[in-house]
Nucleic acid binder design. Structure first.
Length: 952
RNA sequence: GGGCACGUGGCGGAAUUGGUAUACGCGCCGGUCUUAGGAACCGGUUCCUCGCGGAUUGAGAGUUCGAGUCUCUCCGUGCCCACCA
């Protein structure tokens, strides 16, 4: 038996696997297919990152296990090779990007192969291969034909350093995602993809797929669906008749009666169309706003600015009231209609603006609270009895404490409240109530809050559903003088004085909890739904109901709006797929005929974008000048190229049929393999790549190119690997871990096991160079353990180890599926600790163990498999199945607690009932010691688990 | 400001449904073998206490026979989004 030398065995088995093609997926198989996918890498000059290894190894383990379970597995890999880093490198060195890419992919391939990943290398794809991007271009043309690709003059985010237009998604905090340079605005003709036309489906179909919940949430937020209404406000110029109108978008038509002004975006067309008096003032404001960059302008913290349009008024369609019109940059031209109705009472932004410009605030939604559970839970079916009431806040200015009320005998804490008779003065009613219930007689009225609330609850004594309408009245206590209190009242209430800081945890009733919002001022902005007030005939309705009714009454249109914007698809660069379009003076934009695809990237001398911001392709007149496919007249090629999200939007389909020259993939093969069963990748791709590729896939589904409407059935994500110390790994910090070095020192198997063992797969974790030795030792011990594998038929594991083996089979199988790789490795370590203590291990049991290790450490497992005399590969052997009958009931051990503390344990006999377990527990010496001669007050018996004894 | 995670030994972390907290690994301490060891192996290792015993999952409260796990409040950390009407 040799000692373990990873450098000898790893290369050897990698060659062997390659030769036999054991990881190749079988087309046309009848077996159940399994298509796991990892994000194909951008082959950078820096080489493979430890993060790639984490994700790729994880899915490799799943793929290997499924293969051993008899599934036909397609685990492919390729290169997402278009992209700026390569282009920038080419600019710096003058070397063709194609050559650089070749070098980098060769290096990546070598590195991936050195890790023993079970990719099907026969299906490798490369987005920069004309045979590949021919189909990327083809998809673009299909989109153009369906009207989804269009050219538009748009204000784009422009990175002055990279000389490139960026999609909104590529702008991070107002800076270029790649180089961090602040982004400028430029107007440019750009190709756009109408992803917004798919917004509803991209949103709704998330219900169909099995993505991690946080991924779904992020996508939903990004798409930003909101239901609302478009409502027209007529515009009245002073003296003149109604001429124009402002259309606003609102999600809250229920607040329409609370509108006190209207705001339009600086870019709104009415800014120039309307005739108002202060043109120059407004013009200056608009110009300043347009000059500001996005970061400054959209900073929510920034103080609100704006200008009123003098001499024009908007007419609220709900009540025909005239309200002023403002221009302000807090309204975005690109969302909704670029105009909002401002309701400062119920929107924090409108409130901030109104406060600054001293505009009126009109409250039309009263907060509402409903008893849903507990004592006050509303009794369905019973009508609500409405009562006006006051909630009385009495402060003792000497101590700063507030007068509170605890109901005697029940767990209910609040303030003193009381009913108000019709026509009764609120302040007088409040004084009367305090006097009756507490005896305090000298109160100084401070204020009565304009904010009233509604509470809905079940009144247990009166057996009624109640709707209390509370007004809050504030007093200061002038002195502690008290009148005698009626005995009946005194028996109900207990007077408590509470400090402000204690209030939050004290109150148990709605009006008490709410008071904290308005204790010091009435500035509270209620943005929640509630009950309408001061809204004409709609007063008294609930928000949800009122939204529909009010919108309808004023002729509003129900609309659904999205935050998602169309995708800017043009890049004025070289290293990307040429956009296959031709511009003809006569015919306009004409797509390149499909027979002429691909439009190949021509050779250029310089890779730099031109100073005008045009692609370097524009300098090659021989390439640019062409004939119109329609009229044969002179025409020019589009010189923009696609963004690097293009090739990755459909690559998973190309793996299915990578060499097909007639179609992006043959329909029968797509029918078998698609969709991807399980896609693992980074959270950073949730709103970009993942959304884009779902969009493309849905489009391909619509034109019949694929037969499913979602590309990925399941999506999981891995956590980042950070450098030692928890900071980001980066070349500039010099803390990058080099995989080649680790494979050299510890071996691929140890590196794989370490990356799986280091922590929970979905969480970020810092690299620790010391810890990798643990997995290395595990592998060495595993290698050494094969000596104990015995052919002797009489050899047997101890009962406990036998049981552990089968429990480990079950645990590892389940953990792999749930991505609990760290606990799976831990279970294998626990098992090896037990196996090492055995004198001999029956060969079958040893093989079972080896199979469990195989997906994690494929080389050493294969080596030992061969060493003990197997012919085929362990990776095509059958995955073990746990035998329940071999799992000894651990549950026989019963723990005994006395007053919640563990005081002993005993082994129960099979079939003991609760009484027997109780008796056995009480008979224990340790238990007797703690129970003494006291009589147990309560005994809880959980069969198979524990006995819990309570003594006082 | 909003959303989503999370907080357990010196460190990474474990703990199906509430049921023996600290598994597994690193590190550290002691030992064996060695000329030696930053190698390997064996043993120990949450904290306080000589011990009996007690304390402990960011802090505080609640529900429970029993809480790392459920509820509430607070503190702290990470990620994403951020004037989206």
């Amino acid at each position: 038996m040799n000692t373990y030398d990873h450098s000898k065995i790893e290369k050897k088995w990698q060659r062997e696997w390659e030769k036999k093609g054991i990881y190749e997926a079988q087309d046309g198989s009848l077996a159940k297919k399994f298509y796991p996918l990892v994000e194909f890498p951008f082959p950078s000059g820096a080489g493979l990152h430890t993060g790639h290894i984490r994700s790729y190894t994880a899915m490799d383990i799943v793929a290997r296990k499924r293969r051993m379970q008899g599934e036909n597995v397609l685990y492919p890999i390729g290169w997402d090779a278009f992209g700026l880093p390569t282009e920038n490198y080419a600019i710096k060195t003058g070397r063709p990007p194609k050559d650089v890419t070749k070098e980098n992919t060769d290096n990546f391939r070598r590195q991936l192969q050195s890790l023993g990943l079970s990719f099907d290398w026969s299906r490798e794809v490369d987005t920069t291969d004309p045979g590949y991007y021919r189909w990327t271009q083809w998809i673009f043309i299909q989109m153009y034909k369906k009207g989804l690709a269009y050219k538009a003059k748009t204000e784009i985010n422009w990175c002055p350093k990279d000389k490139i237009g960026l999609a909104n998604e590529e702008v991070v905090n107002g800076c270029c995602e790649r180089c961090g340079t602040p982004v400028e605005k430029r107007v440019k003709e750009q190709w756009m993809l109408a992803i917004t036309k798919y917004a509803d489906r991209l949103y709704a179909d998330l219900d169909k797929v099995d993505y991690l919940e946080k991924i779904k949430i992020q996508q939903r937020n990004w798409i930003g669906r909101s239901e609302g209404a478009e409502i027209d406000f007529a515009v009245k110029a002073s003296g003149a008749a109604v001429s124009d109108k402002i259309r606003v978008f609102t999600t809250r038509p229920d607040t329409l009666f609370g509108v006190t002004y209207v705001v339009i975006a600086p870019e709104h067309e009415l800014v120039s169309k309307l005739s108002y008096k202060n043109k120059s003032e407004v013009g200056a404001y608009v110009a300043a706003a347009k000059k500001m960059d996005d970061i400054a302008r959209t900073d929510a913290q920034k103080e609100k600015t704006g200008v009123r349009l003098d001499g024009v008024m908007a007419i609220n369609p709900a009540n025909s009231e005239e309200v002023p019109i403002f221009v302000s940059d807090y309204v975005l031209a690109t969302y909704g209609t670029g105009a909002v109705m401002a309701v400062p009472a119920h929107d924090v932004r409108d409130r901030a603006f109104a406060t600054k410009f001293k505009l009126p605030i009109r409250r039309v939604i009263e907060p509402a609270f409903k008893g849903l559970s507990g004592d006050g839970a509303i009794e369905p079916g019973l009508p609500f009895i409405k009562r006006d009431a006051v909630c009385i806040v009495v402060r003792d200015p000497k101590t700063g404490a507030y007068l509170c009320n605890s109901w005697k005998g029940i767990h209910m804490h609040g303030l003193f409240t009381g009913g108000v008779e019709q026509g009764e003065d609120l302040v007088e009613a409040a004084r009367r109530e305090i006097l009756e219930e507490t005896g305090y007689k000298n109160l100084k009225h401070i204020r009565t809050s304009p904010i009233a609330i509604n509470t809905f609850f079940y009144h247990r004594v009166k057996k009624q559903n109640r709707h209390a309408h509370f007004t809050f009245v504030f007093f200061d206590l002038e002195n502690g003088e008290r009148a005698p209190v009626d005995e009946k009242e005194a028996a109900l209430h207990e007077i408590v004085w509470k400090k402000k800081t204690e209030l939050k945890n004290f109150f148990t009733v709605f009006e008490g909890e709410f008071i904290l919002n308005i204790l010091d001022s009435d500035d509270y902005v209620n943005v929640d739904d509630g009950v309408l007030s001061d809204s004409g005939s709609f007063s008294g309705l609930e928000s949800a109901d009122a939204r529909r009714k009010i919108a309808e009454a004023v002729g509003g249109k129900q609309v659904i709006r999205y935050k998602l914007r169309d995708w800017i698809f043009s890049r004025q660069r070289y290293w990307g797929e040429p956009i296959p379009m031709i511009s003809c003076e006569k015919c306009g934009w004409v797509p390149v005929p499909e027979k002429d695809l691909p439009v190949e990237l021509p050779k250029v001398d310089k890779y730099e974008p031109t100073d005008t911001g045009e692609s370097p392709l524009s300098l090659i007149s021989k390439w640019v000048e062409t004939k119109c496919p329609t009229c044969e007249g002179p025409a020019r090629r589009e010189t923009d190229v696609m963004p690097n999200w293009a090739g990755s939007s459909w690559y998973y389909l190309r793996y299915i049929d990578p060499k097909n020259k007639k179609a992006l993939a043959a329909p029968d093969k797509v029918a078998y393999w698609a969709p991807v069963d399980w896609y693992n990748g980074g959270m950073e791709h949730t709103t970009l790549h993942l959304l884009y590729s779902r969009f493309w896939h849905k489009f391909l589904f619509d034109i019949g190119a694929v037969n499913t409407d979602e590309p990925y059935m399941k999506r999981t994500s891995h956590g980042l690997i950070l450098a030692e110390g928890g900071v980001k790994m980066s070349k500039s910090l010099g803390n990058v871990v080099n995989p080649d070095e680790l494979v050299g020192i510890y071996g691929a198997d140890a590196l794989r096991v370490y990356e799986m063992f280091m922590g929970p797969f979905d969480q970020a974790i810092a690299w620790d160079s010391k810890s990798i030795i643990g997995p290395r030792r595990f592998i060495e011990r595993f290698h050494a353990l094969s000596e104990k594998s015995s052919e002797d038929k009489a050899a047997a594991l101890s009962k406990e180890t036998q049981s552990l083996l089968h429990r480990t089979i079950a645990k590892v199988s389940a953990d792999i599926e749930s991505m609990g790789f760290n606990t799976a490795v831990s279970a294998l370590m626990i098992l090896i600790n037990a196996l090492e203590k055995e004198a001999a291990i029956p060969r079958a049991d040893f093989e079972t163990f080896a199979k469990l290790v195989a997906p994690f450490a494929p080389h050493v497992a294969e080596d030992i498999w061969a060493e003990i005399g197997n012919k085929g590969s362990i990776h095509t052997s059958a995955w073990p199945v746990a035998d329940a009958s071999k799992i000894v009931e651990e549950a026989l051990k019963v723990v005994v607690q006395v007053n919640g503390k563990v005081r002993g344990a005993f082994i129960a006999e099979r079939g003991m009932d609760k009484d027997a377990l109780e008796k056995a527990a009480l008979a224990l010496d340790e238990v007797k010691k703690w129970v003494g001669d006291k009589k147990p007050e309560k005994i809880v018996v959980v069969p198979g688990k524990l006995v819990s004894i309570v003594v006082r």
